[in-house]
């Protein structure tokens, strides 16, 4: 009984510390990469915003499967008693979406614009009981390369 209690406490502490650490590290990497890619926008328009000739267009996608740590799952379990917003989940989805967009951009470094960005979120934990709370986030769009772009050749 005591042993079981200690194991749960250990897992909570492990989840809290490592989850926090990984989150901080991930946000740091996300911010750095987003700054690097800020000149190549991803937009949700379905048509090109300007009338410039296009040299190539291609479908690109980026995805990530993430799971929540033990501590946050414990918190959300408590929260579901009282209802309300599950604050511990929001950074998780935020990280996943931004990571997916970055992977999409990184897969096509020659693009000038990412057109018609769409997100899809898939819960792949269905049927696996309540143990695994993981989601896949997919970001996809059409990468556009303009024909007339004057580039400061590949500084990216």
């Amino acid at each position: 009984m005591l042993i079981e209690f200690l194991i749960v406490v250990f897992l909570l502490v492990l989840g809290f510390t490592s989850g926090k650490l990984l989150e901080l590290r991930h946000y740091k990497s996300i911010r750095e990469r987003e700054a690097r890619w800020s000149a190549v926008p991803a937009v949700t328009f379905r048509t090109l915003p300007d009338q410039r000739p296009v040299a190539a267009s291609v479908l690109v996608a980026g995805s990530v499967v993430i799971s929540i740590d033990f501590w946050k799952r414990f918190l959300s379990g408590l929260r579901s008693i009282f209802g309300g917003e599950l604050l511990s989940y929001s950074p998780l989805f935020d990280r996943a979406r931004r990571e997916a967009v970055l992977r999409m951009k990184e897969s096509c470094p020659k693009a000038d614009l990412f057109l018609n960005l769409r997100f899809e979120t898939v819960s792949i934990s269905k049927g696996a009981g309540r143990r695994i709370g993981s989601v896949e986030v997919l970001a996809y769009s059409t990468a556009i390369r303009y024909a007339d772009e004057v580039r400061s050749e590949e500084t990216r």
């Binding site: 989840g15 490592s18 695994i132």
Partner: peptide
């Protein structure tokens, strides 16, 4: 994935699979 669930983070195996 079950182990990774304790600490949270990316499940690379599943990302690859999908």
């Amino acid at each position: 994935a079950g182990l990774k669930n304790l600490v949270g983070g990316e499940l690379k195996g599943y990302t690859q699979l999908l």
